[in-house]
Each structure stands twice: as C-alpha cells, then as structure tokens.
Amino acid sequence: MKTRIIDSSGSRITELGFGSAGAGNLFRPVPYEDITKAINKAHSLGIQYFDTAPHYGAGLAERRLGVALHDLPRAYIFLSTKVGRVLHADKNSVKKDADCYVQASPFDREYDYTYDGIMRSFEDSLQRLGVSQIDMLLMHDIGELTHKEKNRVYFQQAVEGGFKAMTELREQGVVRNIGLGVNEWKICDQAMEHAQFDCFMVANCFTLLNNDITQTFTDKCRKNQVSLIAAAPFNSGILAKGSKGLGHYFYGEAPQDIVEKVIAIESVCEEFDVSLQAAAIQYALRYDCVKSILIGMTNDVRVAQNVAWYEEDIPEAFWQALAPVIYSK
C-alpha cells in the first residue's frame, strides 16, 4: 500500500487507515474475534495505520487494539490515540451502555483538556494499549459541535494547558506527532494560532458531500506544513450505501438535498463505471496535504472491500466531470 510523509515530522503513514470505534462496540456489540480478524486482515493487506481513542467503548477499543497489535512488528505500525476525556471507574457497573457504545467498559467519561488531564489520559492510554510511545496524539472533540456553549471554557483549558502538555510529550519523544481529532475543521484553524501542530484528523468534513475545507484551509495547512487525515469518508454511511440504501448522514437521517446530491454523484459514477465508494475513499487523497483516509472497520470482509475500493482505478476525466457536482452550492 502506498504511504505518505507527514510533512513536519517525516513520519510515514499508509494512505488507508483502520478506525477502531467499532472495536468499542459503537451502536452494537462486536465480538473480539471479529475485531482481531479485521486487524490481522488489514495488516496483511498493507494497512499500517491504526487509530483509537479512550472514548471508544470507554477504553474497550484501546484494550482490544493493543492486544491484537501486540504480536505484529511494532516498527511497521503507525498508532494514534486521543486525549480530552479522562475515564473514571464506575464501581456499580460491570459493563456499561453510554454515548452510543453498548456493553462497554465500566467507566464514566469526563471532558478534561487541562495540562494534568491530558497527561493522565495519555498515561492511561499507554497502559491500555500496552505501548511505551505513540506515533500521533490527537486532542479529541474540541469544538462547538460537541460542546456548544461550553466550548469557550474547554478551548481555554486547551490553550492554557492542554496544548502545552501535548507539546512537552512530543519534545520528550514519547509522541512523534500532535494534533486535533475533530468533526469540524474550523476549530483546527483556530488552534493553529496557539501551538505548532503536525496533523489534524477531520471527520465527516473532507468528503464528496462536505468539502468547504478545500476553499482556504487546505492551502493554509500546506503553507504551514500541517498534514491532514480525512476520517469518515462515507459521511457515516450514505456514501457507502448510496441513495437507494439511504445510510446515515452525520449519524442521522439524510436530508433531501443531500440525497439529491448523492444521486447526482451516482450519475457521474455510472457514466464512468466508477464505484461511489471508491470515489468517496479516494477523493481527499487528491490533495497533497492529506496523508491518509481513515475508515471504521469491524470485520475482515469489510477490510478487504475497503482496500479494493481504495485500489480501484479512477480516470482523471471522472474527477473533472464530478467537480461541478460536488463543489456546487
């Protein structure tokens, strides 16, 4: 599988990454055996980038991923996790349903973007993952989309302490790259004024359906040697299932204007005999500042299918024909 270089650090990352939210039992329980098979399949097909977070199953995804990766050559694994939530044990639970995760670990999540909160979260993640260092550490879900009116308080925590903690961890060599992992790119733009970041992971907002990030921010990232990871290229489902399957859009029901845009995209795909899913995966990779596409995967069949879509040949004429559709207002 092709790799790209994170500009500021020189770290090498595969163009396709394995997202582990499903390993934390997102929406439904997933057997550990399925997750292990999926991780091994991904590695066998060349995927070396694996992402996780304490939020996913309240630590469950980190524990599962750490065990599954333990016997794979560490030198060929690029591992990222996140900070911003500290987990506290719930002594009254054995397994817990919360925040869209079912039968998850018995911990409560607390948002904490302070210096001490970041340091504790990082140390806890090292233990759950069974590693001594992380290739990329991302501040998770900072921004108004998650916190609404409380975001000003949390962002101030990050500016006054959280960003400093992440910078120190990078200086100590226990983290190679630092950045944000968010669902809104504009908070990344704001954060760039307060610290030197290596990479931003942007979910659901660098896709065929949602791409205003390309108007100015991709140029700014390129000029400042900040790399991007485009997560959730299917916009939580609709670009995987298509207009007839009516998958979710941003984790909810797709509005009519989005459905109509998907239909228009499908028309161009049919004209050029290109899979909608392949176009969705490969779209952001057309931008040099994008280093990897991160997709959630929970079984080996889905892994193989995603790799096939990533490898599908798409002619340049297709992208030229598609441009007026995806960039129209």
Rank of each mutant, 00 (worst) to 15 (best):
D124I: 03
W309N: 14
V268R: 05
Q196K: 03
L72A: 14
V83S: 10
R222F: 12
K223M: 01
E260A: 13
A279N: 09
H147A: 14
I281R: 11
L276H: 04
M139C: 05
H248Y: 15
S275R: 14
A254D: 09
Q157A: 12
Q133F: 07
D99M: 13
Q127C: 03
G117R: 12
G247P: 08
S9A: 02
I39Y: 01
Q133H: 06
C269P: 07
G24A: 00
D34I: 00
A280H: 15
V325L: 14
I142C: 02
T167M: 01
G84P: 13
K220E: 06
C199I: 03
R152F: 10
W319Y: 01
L137T: 08
H194Q: 00
Y154T: 03
V259R: 10
Y287A: 06
H70K: 03
A165L: 05
R222W: 08
S275T: 12
E144H: 07
S9G: 01
G247N: 05
Y113C: 05
S267D: 14
K41A: 11
C188Y: 07
L69H: 00
S121E: 15
I134L: 00
Q133N: 04
N151M: 04
P29Q: 10
K220Y: 07
A308M: 01
A280E: 15
G242D: 15
M139W: 02
A230G: 09
S292G: 07
L294F: 12
R128D: 07
Q133T: 06
I314C: 14
E171H: 08
M166S: 03
F318P: 00
A158W: 00
Y115L: 04
Q156L: 03
I293W: 13
V290W: 08
V303M: 09
Q157C: 11
A279I: 09
S8Y: 01
A98D: 06
H147R: 14
Y251A: 09
A323H: 11
G10I: 02
A240F: 00
